[in-house]
């Protein structure tokens, strides 16, 4: 059962990664697309907590880093999504998150995730892009992620709630 759960989670992030590169470029704003994998990780964090979300974040990040057409240094998105998963998981409350809380968490997570990725690029001198350009890209990405939240987070959170081990059932 644990294996099955893991496989479903893997399938969800893989699907998100593919949509991100193959579907959303048609709607992209200056090449910036919603970060679906990050949304899935935040959804997992809000339902399952930091440990699960950090692990899922690592898997999702590695997929983004390796699946074509990625060409940046591998491990950068993994690092960003591990931290996002952990922080979002720590921020969750015991009660079910309200819509506002969810949107705020997504906005913060998107900002933190893209920023960590951009900063790691600055440190590693991976792409040489100005800080102002980076900031613009990050802010557009936040807007995109927030816009997609109502469509992505509810089904993702429902799925992870269904996948949750039986211990919370009583």
């Amino acid at each position: 059962m644990t294996l099955l759960r893991g496989l479903v989670a893997l399938a969800v992030v893989a699907f998100a990664t593919v949509l991100q590169v193959s579907l959303f470029p048609h709607f992209a704003w200056d090449g910036i697309v919603p970060n679906l994998a990050l949304l899935v990780v935040v959804g997992a964090a809000l339902v399952r907590g930091p440990q699960f979300a950090a692990t899922l974040g690592f898997v999702a990040g590695v997929l983004i880093d390796l699946a074509p057409p990625a060409d940046h240094i591998a491990g950068r998105w993994a690092l960003a999504l591990v931290i996002v998963g952990y922080l979002a998981g720590r921020a969750r409350q015991d009660i079910r998150p309200t819509a506002v809380v969810t949107v705020l968490t997504v906005a913060a997570a998107s900002f933190v995730g893209s920023s960590i990725f951009a900063l790691s690029g600055l440190l590693l001198r991976d792409p040489v892009v100005g800080v102002s350009d980076m900031l613009e890209v990050i802010l557009v990405a936040v807007v995109w992620d927030v816009l997609l939240t109502p469509f992505v987070l509810p089904p993702v959170m429902l799925l992870f709630r269904r996948l949750e081990p039986a211990q919370v059932a009583y």
Binding site: Q20, V21, P25, G31, I32, V33, H72, W77, A141
Partner: peptide, 15 residues
């Protein structure tokens, strides 16, 4: 072109 790298990755590649 079947896939386009996201703008957030700051590298411009396509598959």
């Amino acid at each position: 072109v079947i896939a386009v790298g996201s703008g957030q990755s700051f590298s411009h590649t396509v598959t």
